[in-house]
Design a binder for these strands. Sequence first.
DNA 1: GCATAAGTACGATCGCCGTCAAACTTTGAT
DNA 2: ATCAAAGTTTGACGGCGATCGTACTTATGC
Lengths: 105, 105
Amino acid sequence: MGRTPLHPEVSQVDLQQVLEALVDPVRRSIVTQLDAAGEDLKCGSFDIAVSKSTATHHFKVLREAGLIRQYYVGTARMNALRRAEMDDAFPGLLDALTTRQAKGR
Amino acid sequence: MGRTPLHPEVSQVDLQQVLEALVDPVRRSIVTQLDAAGEDLKCGSFDIAVSKSTATHHFKVLREAGLIRQYYVGTARMNALRRAEMDDAFPGLLDALTTRQAKGR
DNA sequence: GCATAAGTACGATCGCCGTCAAACTTTGAT
DNA sequence: ATCAAAGTTTGACGGCGATCGTACTTATGC
């Protein structure tokens, strides 16, 4: 497995790429689950209804958009929401999507 | 032409539909131009690099997502940003996209 | 009435994106 | 050493959406 995956600086990511990442319901669900958990989660512990290979794809898109940071712990790949950095680069965006109001709708 | 086009209540629109509308750069540009103008604009006065039929399609998507309200004035179709209603339904979302910071990136 | 302006409606095309299965890799446990 | 667990990689497939041109509709102005 690739030792440490590539992570962009959030300053290198543009709004377009972030929105393309967040428009997919599976990926947005990953983000909200991470936000709700308040801790890093391994890929396998998300509640998403897709195959493993599809999940890998979604995590990659989120990582390349600067939304999550990934690192290995044994065989497990952990996922961390890059909240502070995203809030700094795109103020209010994640807030607008992780509100209970937003998740309900 | 259809006299008065259909407009959903914002309460009938879900976040998924709004994001799908806003993820397209042409449509997001329409929204930011409306926001910057601070007044209603006719379809023809937007700075977008697509054909008229494509433009019609984009305005329809924005209208059905509850983002704009359309009405006729003569042969011109006017477009109004439904700011207050969207802010009420999805707090902070439009703010996050119309910030100068967001537009620059 | 006629021409022009401003959009709309309708197909058709084309590329991208989400999806999966299958084969593979790496790590940890027995 | 083997085996299982957890992801990754690759290739293929299918559907949806952005785009355009053409033909059509409606209103305004002369």
